[in-house]
Each structure stands twice: as C-alpha cells, then as structure tokens.
Amino acid sequence: MRAAVLTTPGRLAVVDDWPDPVCRPDHVIVAIRDVGICGTDLGLFDGSRTVPHLPWVIGHEAHGRIVEVGAGIPPSRIGERVAIEPNYPCQACAPCQNGAPALCLRRGSPALNLPGMLAERVEVPARHAWTLPAGLADQDAVCVEPLAVALAAVRRAALTGTASCLVVGAGALGLLLVHALRSAGHPVAVLEPHPERRARAVALGAAHAPDGTEFPVAFETSGTAAGGEAALARLAPQGRLVLVGVGSDPIPLDTRIAVRRGLTVLGSMIYDHPRDYRATIDAVARDSITPGIVVAASYPLEQAQEAFTAASSVPGKTVITLAEGGAA
C-alpha cells in the first residue's frame, strides 16, 4: 500500500510497497481519507522529537472508513465512516485507574511509539474508531482529534458563567479553542504575533487583547516561554492558567506574581478516554462546533513533503488527503 514514510529528519518519501496492517482481535482496519498535521508531527518531521526507528510513518489526526474487522467486532461495522482517537491508554496503570487515562504510563500513540496514520490503511483498536455523524464534511472529520484536545482543556478549566478568556497562540489549536469558547458563549481575546493567524482568530469572534486587561482564565497553546510569560502576566487575581501547548523552552514562573495573586496553573494533556472523544463527537453531531473552519491548506499524499515543509507557516490546519476512505 502507499504511505508517506519519514526516511531521515526533514525528508518524507511516498512509497507504494509499505506493508499492509494485520487486523488483530478487537481491532479494525481503517482506510484513511485525510490526515491533519500538528506540532507533534512537525517535531517528528524535523528531528526535534525522536521516532522509534527509520523509516517511520508519522501522522495521527485521521479519519476514514472501516474496511476490515478482527475477531470480536461485528462485521456490521465494515463501511462505517470513523474518526480515530489516536491515544490508546492501557487502562491498568495508576493514572488510568484514577480516572486520568490521558496520563497513562503505557499509552500507545500512533506516530510516537506506534506506526502513524499517513498510510492508506491502518489498524486501530475498535473502541478508538468513533462513528461519525452522517454527512459530516471531511474537513470537520479530520479536525475531530485536535477539537477533542481543545474541548478537554475547556472542560478542565472549569469555567463558570460567561467568564472571559484569553487564548495565547492562534495556531490551529488556538483557533479551535477560540471557536469552542465562543460557541459556549465566552468572550475571548487573543494574543498572537503572526498577523494572518491573529486575523483568523478575530474572524472566529476573538478580540485583540488590550494592554493591561486581566482575565480570569488564560489558555496557552503556543508552547513557548514568551507565550507562557504573557499568559501569566494577564491573569487576574485567583486566575487560572491552562497550559495546552508543549514546547522545548521552560516557562519562567515568578512566584511573587503566582503567590500574591493566588494563581492556579493547570496542565491539560490531550483528552481522557472515552469521555472527551464522546463529547467531541456529540458536539459536531449537534452542529454546535464546526472544527473544519481552521483548515487552511490541503495536499495530496504525493505532496506530503511539500505539505510538511510549508505547514509551520500556514495560518491554520494543513491536511493531507489520501485516495481511499472517501466521505459520505
């Protein structure tokens, strides 16, 4: 089958002889339609994050159709159009037993420690292949995974009423947070130095964050030290900082500010299985959120190299489209 294979940092080769997956019990084979590119993928691509070995298939934000089922899975699932939840908790370690599977100590993660999704067919645990609402647009389906990250962060923030929020960083995740918060009735301001990304956030209903304005809640999505410092500086007394972005530079924490203002800093790691993916599928089924509005560029599989090379400068989500697994 065809796949986009990382052969060396910065280089993807599209091959047509990649081994087909084997369907084990309680698993399904999904023919992939689209794969979104996120910051994790870019880190694997450029070598700033390591892969188990080379060559290696990356990509984890995907949707498609079930074409085969393993033992224990009803054959009636064949043909289902599904979004893949690409983090598989062990369900046995302490975090899993304590209701925090996002922090699983033995989590299986496509692209990171399991083969990724930039292939025509992939094997997925059946419980992680979520049936999509009929008629959902492909661009919405491919953004279910990053939307789940955004909605989990909103849930963990424990917002009350119509609290105003600050979103720092307007990459695809920041844009989805703006969209989700505005859909829930929260006023949102954004801090983003990139003018095109900032303009997209404003188009989704965010305001520019005025100088000196303080917020009860801030979401940091850039994963940068500058972003973290800016978010902390804008928090009101008893404010809450929700860290969603992951970067390589530590964020300096001025304890004088944190202590004297009574601030709370909360890390929000992906999403908890199955509650957050179920909530995300329900949200797109109700048409209350249309995550595909953050898609800004699309490439065919044959241009995977070009897609990854350009993705970091695109003001929104970049998607790679494969031939199989088309929309309803």
Score class of each variant (00 low, 15 high):
Val149Pro: 08
Val178Trp: 01
Val144Phe: 12
Pro133Leu: 14
Thr131Lys: 13
Thr131Arg: 14
Thr131Tyr: 07
Asp140Arg: 08
Ala157Gln: 04
Arg156Trp: 11
Leu136Glu: 05
Leu147Tyr: 14
Ala172Asp: 13
Pro133Ala: 14
Gly161Phe: 03
Val149Ala: 14
Leu177Asp: 01
Glu145Pro: 05
Leu147Trp: 14
Arg127Asp: 15
Leu173His: 01
Glu145Arg: 01
Glu145Phe: 06
Gly171Pro: 01
Gln139Lys: 09
Ala148His: 05
Ala148Gly: 03
Thr160Leu: 00
Ala134Asp: 13
Glu145Gln: 07
Ser164His: 12
Ala150Asp: 01
Asp140Pro: 03
Leu151His: 13
Thr162Val: 12
Glu145Gly: 06
Val178Thr: 07
His128Asn: 12
Trp130Cys: 12
Ala141Val: 00
Val149His: 09
Leu173Ser: 04
Leu173Asn: 03
Val144Leu: 15
Pro146Ile: 03
Ser164Ala: 15
Pro146Thr: 04
Arg155Ala: 13
Ala137Tyr: 10
His128Ala: 10
Leu166Met: 00
Asp140Leu: 08
Ala150His: 09
Gly174Leu: 11
Ser164Gly: 12
Val149Thr: 12
Leu147Gln: 13
Leu159His: 01
Leu132Lys: 01
Ala158Ile: 14
Gly135Arg: 04
Leu176Lys: 08
Pro125Asn: 08
Ala153Val: 03
Val149Glu: 05
His128Gly: 06
Ala157Gly: 04
Ala126Asp: 06
Leu136Gln: 06
Leu166Ile: 00
Arg127Trp: 13
Arg156Phe: 09
Leu159Met: 00
Ala172Gly: 11
Ala163Ser: 14
Pro133Ser: 15
Ala148Tyr: 02
Leu166Gly: 00
Ala129Gly: 10
Leu159Ser: 01
Cys165Ser: 02
Val178Lys: 03
Ala157Lys: 06
Gly171Ala: 02
Val178Arg: 03
Leu151Ile: 15
Ala170Leu: 10
Ala150Val: 06
Thr160His: 05
His128Lys: 08
Val144Pro: 09
Gly169Glu: 01
Ala129Asp: 05
Asp140Asn: 11
Gly135Glu: 03
Leu177Met: 08
Thr131Ser: 14
Leu136Arg: 08
Ala141His: 00
Leu151Met: 15
Ala153Pro: 02
Leu175His: 05
Pro125Thr: 09
Val178Ile: 11
Gly174Glu: 07
Asp140Gly: 09
Cys165Ile: 03
Thr162Ile: 11
Ala148Ile: 02
Leu147Ser: 12
Trp130Ser: 12
Leu151Ser: 15
